[in-house]
Nucleic acid binder design. Structure first.
Lengths: 106, 106
DNA sequence: ACGATATTTCTAGAACTATCGAAATAAATT
DNA sequence: AATTTATTTCGATAGTTCTAGAAATATCGT
C-alpha cells in the first residue's frame, strides 16, 4: 500500500463519527448494516451520516450494495488489513529492520 | 484506548506529510531525529514542518527533547502499538466475536 | 399513479487546517 | 554582547470539512 492511500484511509478513520461507523460495521461482520441501521445506532442526522459514509466508500473502506429500499454497507476487511499492515511494517518496526526487503544494494 | 483518542491519532497520521514524518522517525528508531534532519529529508519549509510536528506531539505520537540547539523528536512506540491494537481489536475482528468480553447476557 | 420509506444531493454557514514568509526566541560560539 | 544556527510563533490567505435542514431521488407496496 502506498503512503498516500494509507494517509487517505487514516484521514477518513480519523473522525470520531466515521471511526464509530466503521467499528460498528466491523462488529456487524461480513453482512454489514444498512445506512438506516447505522443511524439508529448512532443517532446522527441522515444527511450528516450519508456524508460520512460517502467518505468511507470513497476511500474504499466501505462498500455499498442496494437491497431494495435499503443500502447495505459492508466493511472492506482486506483493505483494513492492508492498512494495518502498512502501519505495522512502515510505522512500527523498531530495531534493525533494513529499508528495503531485498536486492538493490551494490 | 478510547475511540476518541484513537480518532485523534488517526486524524494526525492522516496527513501525507505527517505520516511521512512519523514513518521517518520510526525508521530512525529510538533515537529519532532532529526537526532539522526531518526537514532535510522531506524538504518542507521550517514553519510548515514545525506546525505538523506540533500536531504529532500534541496527540502524543511524538515526543521532543531539547539537546542544545536541536530538538530531538522520537516516535512514541507504545502509543503506536496501542493504536494498532485498537484498530486490530475494534475494527478488524471478523467472525463470531461477541460484543462484550463477558457477562451481561441475561 | 400514489404514498411511504430509505437515502442522497444541495446548500450554506461556521469552524477548522494547511501553507509559508517574516519576526521572535533559544542556545552555542566567538 | 554580537553572531550564527535551530526552531517556533505570528499572521494572513486559501482551501477544506463538518453540520444539518430542505429538497430530490429511488424503491416498494397498494
Amino acid at each position: 500500500m502506498e503512503l498516500d492511500h494509507a494517509a487517505r484511509c487514516l484521514e477518513k478513520l480519523g473522525n470520531p463519527t466515521r471511526l464509530e461507523v466503521f467499528r460498528l460495521l466491523v462488529k456487524a461482520g461480513h453482512d454489514g448494516l444498512s445506512v438506516g441501521a447505522i443511524q439508529e445506532h448512532l443517532g446522527v442526522p441522515a444527511s450528516t451520516l450519508s456524508h460520512h459514509v460517502a467518505h468511507l466508500v470513497n476511500v474504499g473502506l466501505v462498500s455499498q450494495e442496494r437491497e431494495g429500499r435499503v443500502l447495505r454497507c459492508r466493511p472492506n476487511f482486506p483493505l483494513m488489513d492492508e492498512l494495518i499492515g502498512f502501519l505495522t511494517s512502515e510505522c512500527c518496526v523498531l530495531a534493525d529492520a533494513p529499508e528495503e526487503p531485498a536486492a538493490a544494494r551494490a
